[in-house]
Write a protein that binds this DNA or RNA. Structure first.
Length: 440
DNA sequence: AACACGGGGGA
DNA sequence: TCCCCAGTGTT
């Protein structure tokens, strides 16, 4: 946390470009104005008649104009050559923005190329089988993004005649399009003066304007959007919004920011306060809960020789509709026993698979360990080699479609061909690779 | 307001 | 290895 924010009123400090204010939180003058606007627009207008307030307003305007102009000039020289910047096709911009949610530029680039090649238009994506879209997203994470994107694209095709909407109301109503993505597409594709506030932007603004509000809180994002919108120079929304994000991504980085090359260092309030390293303020997420899981590695025989039995996950929830090796959550009583609990774990694996899926297996011996951390769960997995002893109700036939009643209960023998066709969470790709049953 | 939802990169 | 990153939807 910050060293400044101790809940005690600070005295007004003389000197400096942005003298500290007499509040429990120490804001620069125009910072206070931002918050005042947000909370009490009218009362602020009335108070804004004194000489002191007048000066503050002038200061604010200058600092904002300085920021916008220098940032824009910098961007025109230093912008990166990114695939989606070579197009103004709103559909491509949209794809890139959805992929860029929670995901780095370098990671997204190869996915973006493959995705637009495979689904070059709204119609192509709308008409594609969901399975193919999920496969194209494999490894990118947050798979509901892919599902929501396709649902939204189908709506664009049917309701808007294939044209990506260019109004806040319409585009925000699409699945998976929140405040950030809406602003990004409207500004970048259509040059509309809407803010696009992501993590980069909140970091940059919190430092430059010395905003100590917790960026994890929704109310802070609302305030940032208001500020970001004010900063957009007339007719320059497209480049300005990208400039703001570009600065956060390449200069005003989370750790060890490159202040000496920053185009707006001269008026950066965070820098002047020596508070850059402490900003932005963000409450920590709680650590992921640990889960011990037993995984069944079941090799086929006869016509399924060389294949491994996989299960399709339910259509809702974690890793929805993706494929995986069958596995079960071990109860605390077993998990607490530690590595010596293999006997108990194997019994639990066998019993759970039988009762939950009608899958009969005989666990033979531990094979390998694997770990996977989601943002909220930590999986500690032990893989057990198992002998296949039958699947109740229905044989594990390749190619059979899953009915609703089969949700979470569909099995398939996975070989090379299935690996190329169906999406698996990363952790299972790694397990299969390490098991040496398949080539990469 | 709190939680669910992946995976990658850097110190 | 551990720590950090961070949009949208749901409850």
């Amino acid at each position: 946390m910050t060293d400044q924010h101790d809940g005690v009123d600070k005295p007004v400090q003389p000197g400096g470009y942005f003298p500290r204010c007499q509040h429990t939180k120490t804001y620069a003058p125009f910072t206070r104005k931002l918050l005042a606007d947000q909370q009490q627009d009218q009362s602020y207008q009335k108070r804004d008649t004194t000489a002191t307030k007048e000066e503050i307003r002038v200061d604010t305007t200058e600092a904002k104009q300085y920021f916008s102009k220098h940032l824009l000039d910098w961007y025109n020289v230093h912008k990166r050559d990114l695939p989606w910047r070579r197009s103004r096709n709103p559909y491509y911009i949209w794809i890139s923005e959805v992929m860029l949610q929670q995901t780095r530029v370098e990671t997204v680039i190869p996915y973006f190329h493959r995705f637009v090649e495979k689904f070059p238009s709204v119609e192509a994506l709308a008409d594609a089988p969901e399975e193919e879209v999920l496969k194209a997203w494999e490894g990118l994470g947050y798979y509901s993004r892919a599902r929501n994107l396709q649902a939204a694209v189908r709506e664009v095709k049917e309701v808007y005649g294939g044209r990506v909407p260019d109004t806040q109301e319409e585009i925000s109503s699409l699945k998976g399009v929140g405040p950030y993505t809406a602003g990004a597409v409207l500004s970048i594709a259509y040059n509309k003066p809407e803010p696009a506030v992501d993590g980069n932007v909140m970091r940059v603004l919190s430092r430059y304007f010395l905003l100590r509000d917790d960026i994890a809180k929704p109310a802070t994002r609302i305030g940032m959007e208001r500020l970001a919108k004010e900063l957009i120079p007339e007719g320059e929304a497209r480049d300005f919004n990208q400039a703001l994000m570009e600065l956060g991504a390449t200069v005003c980085t989370p750790k060890s920011p490159h202040c000496l090359t920053c185009p707006v260092i001269e008026h950066c309030a965070g820098r002047m306060e020596g508070a850059v390293d402490a900003l932005p303020v963000k409450t920590k997420a709680k650590p992921p809960r640990p889960e011990k899981r037993a995984v069944a590695f079941i090799e086929g025989a006869g016509e399924n020789a060389g294949k491994v039995l996989a299960r399709q996950r339910p259509k809702e929830g974690l890793l929805a509709r993706m494929w995986e090796l069958p596995h079960v959550l071990l109860p605390e009583t077993i998990a607490a026993l530690g590595p010596e609990s293999d006997e108990a774990a194997m019994r639990c694996l066998s019993e759970s698979l039988a009762s939950e899926h009608g899958l009969e297996v005989e666990p033979l011996a531990p094979m390998m360990d694997a770990e996977h951390t989601f943002s909220h769960i930590h999986w500690q997995m032990r893989v057990y080699r198992c002998r296949f002893a039958g699947l109740a109700g229905r044989a594990a036939e390749n190619g059979s479609a899953a009915g609703d009643s089969d949700d979470g209960n569909v099995f398939l023998w996975f070989g090379e061909r299935e690996l190329e066709q169906y999406a698996l969470p990363n952790v299972f790709v790694k397990i299969l690779k390490q098991a040496g049953s398949y080539r990469s």
